[in-house]
Simulated scan of single mutants.
Amino acid sequence: MRGTAGWTLAEMPGQTGRTALVTGANSGVGYETSRALARVGATVIMGGRDESRLAEAATAIRAETPGARLEVRRLDLADLDSVRAAAAGVLAEGRPLDLLFNNAGVMAVPQRRTTRDGFELTFGTNHLGHFALTGHLLPALLSAGAARVVTVSAIASRWPAGGLADVNSEQAYRPMQAYAVSKFANVVFTQELARRAAGTGLVAVAAHPGVSQTNITREVPRVLAAVNQLLRPFLFQSTDRAALPSLYAATHPDLGGGEFVGPTGLGEGRGAPGPVRLPRQADDPEVGRRLWELSERLTGVDYAFPSTRPAA
Rank of each mutant, 00 (worst) to 15 (best):
M1Y: 07
G6E: 05
G6W: 05
T8G: 09
A10L: 06
G14N: 01
G17S: 11
T19Q: 08
T23V: 09
N26W: 04
E32K: 00
L37Q: 05
R39A: 13
T43N: 07
T43I: 10
I45E: 05
R49G: 04
E51R: 03
A55I: 08
A58D: 00
A60M: 08
I61R: 00
R62H: 10
T65R: 05
E71S: 03
R74H: 08
A92R: 10
E93K: 07
G94Q: 09
D98H: 15
A104Q: 03
V106F: 09
M107N: 02
V109R: 01
V109T: 02
P110A: 03
P110T: 09
G118E: 12
L121W: 12
G124N: 02
F131P: 09
F131W: 04
L133Q: 00
L138H: 01
L141K: 05
S143H: 15
A144R: 01
V150M: 10
V150H: 04
T151P: 03
T151C: 05
V152P: 09
R158G: 02
S169K: 06
A180I: 10
S182I: 08
S182Y: 00
E192K: 00
L193D: 02
A194H: 10
R196M: 00
V203P: 06
A206Y: 08
A206N: 07
V211S: 12
T214G: 01
R218W: 14
P221A: 12
R222G: 13
V223Y: 15
L224S: 12
A226N: 04
A226G: 15
V227L: 11
L231Y: 02
F234K: 01
S238G: 14
T239P: 02
R241F: 02
R241K: 15
A250I: 08
T251H: 01
L255Q: 06
G258P: 14
T264A: 13
V276A: 04
V276T: 11
R277Y: 11
L278Y: 14
R280V: 11
D283Y: 11
D283V: 10
D284V: 14
D284R: 05
D284S: 13
D284L: 05
D284H: 00
E286Y: 01
R290K: 13
W292I: 12
L298N: 04
D302T: 12
D302I: 12
Y303T: 07
F305A: 02
S307F: 10
P310I: 15
P310Q: 13
A311F: 10
A312F: 12
